[in-house]
Simulated assay, not measured.
Amino acid sequence: MREQFTTVMKEAMKAGDKGRLAAVRLIMAALKDKDIEARGLGKTVSDEDILGLLQKMVKSRQESAEIYAKAGRPELEAQERQEIAVISEFLPKQMSDDEVKAAIQAAIAETGASSMKDMGKVVGVLRAKYAGQIDFGKASGLVKGMLAG
């Protein structure tokens, strides 16, 4: 993934796309911070960690864009939305609601979950198989609903 960031950054420089270049530089700066943090703990940053970082960046920008929209700052909202678009290019395609429900049902069957006590097992299986493809905030609610019903 790191090579992909560098390649996209070079392409943006050559094309003179300042917005795209700035967004990729933000990604690389956040990744460098993550590397430094991991090195202090004696770990390395995996692709799963990078996906998590990108998802966090998208979520943060979505929240900012909503705040700018409410505050009547369309230029700042547009900038946040542009950054979201660039960051999202590096994330795997998000699963549809139906696909998420099917994945949850499969995970429940795989773990033999029958009650709310088993929710952690189900979510753990989903995280292992579908990292970056599912919004786990929504998925947790769906898992809870399926196990309770």
Rank of each mutant, 00 (worst) to 15 (best):
residue 13 M to Y: 14
residue 17 D to T: 03
residue 15 A to P: 13
residue 74 P to N: 09
residue 58 V to F: 07
residue 92 P to L: 00
residue 147 L to A: 08
residue 57 M to K: 04
residue 134 I to F: 01
residue 98 D to S: 12
residue 85 A to G: 10
residue 103 A to G: 09
residue 9 M to Y: 12
residue 46 S to C: 03
residue 111 T to R: 01
residue 86 V to E: 03
residue 131 A to T: 06
residue 142 L to D: 05
residue 117 K to Q: 15
residue 60 S to F: 07
residue 1 M to S: 11
residue 97 D to F: 04
residue 16 G to I: 11
residue 118 D to P: 01
residue 111 T to G: 01
residue 128 A to H: 07
residue 107 A to W: 01
residue 117 K to L: 11
residue 136 F to P: 00
residue 137 G to C: 05
residue 81 R to L: 03
residue 143 V to H: 00
residue 109 A to Y: 03
residue 95 M to I: 02
residue 100 V to I: 15
residue 109 A to I: 02
residue 75 E to M: 08
residue 102 A to M: 09
residue 118 D to W: 03
residue 71 A to H: 10
residue 69 A to Q: 08
residue 6 T to G: 04
residue 11 E to T: 14
residue 102 A to S: 14
residue 116 M to V: 08
residue 61 R to M: 08
residue 31 L to R: 10
residue 78 A to E: 13
residue 110 E to N: 04
residue 109 A to L: 06
residue 75 E to P: 03
residue 144 K to C: 04
residue 45 V to T: 11
residue 51 L to W: 03
residue 126 L to N: 00
residue 69 A to T: 14
residue 34 K to Y: 06
residue 139 A to S: 05
residue 39 R to L: 13
residue 71 A to N: 13
residue 43 K to I: 10
residue 85 A to F: 06
residue 109 A to V: 06
residue 129 K to P: 00
residue 46 S to Y: 02
residue 11 E to C: 08
residue 1 M to I: 13
residue 68 Y to P: 14
residue 1 M to D: 06
residue 72 G to A: 11
residue 104 I to H: 00
residue 75 E to S: 10
residue 98 D to E: 13
residue 61 R to H: 09
residue 84 I to P: 00
residue 36 I to P: 05
residue 41 L to K: 15
residue 98 D to K: 09
residue 52 G to F: 03
residue 131 A to S: 10
residue 38 A to N: 10
residue 140 S to L: 04
residue 101 K to V: 13
residue 89 E to L: 11
residue 118 D to N: 11
residue 124 G to L: 10
residue 142 L to C: 02
residue 111 T to F: 00
residue 144 K to F: 10
residue 117 K to T: 15
residue 31 L to K: 07
residue 20 R to L: 09
residue 88 S to E: 09
residue 82 Q to N: 13
residue 121 K to F: 02
residue 121 K to L: 08
residue 47 D to T: 15
residue 5 F to T: 13
residue 43 K to F: 10
residue 37 E to I: 08
residue 107 A to I: 03
residue 86 V to L: 04
residue 34 K to F: 08
residue 39 R to G: 11
residue 93 K to E: 15
residue 45 V to Y: 10
residue 62 Q to F: 11
residue 128 A to F: 06
residue 147 L to D: 06
residue 105 Q to I: 11
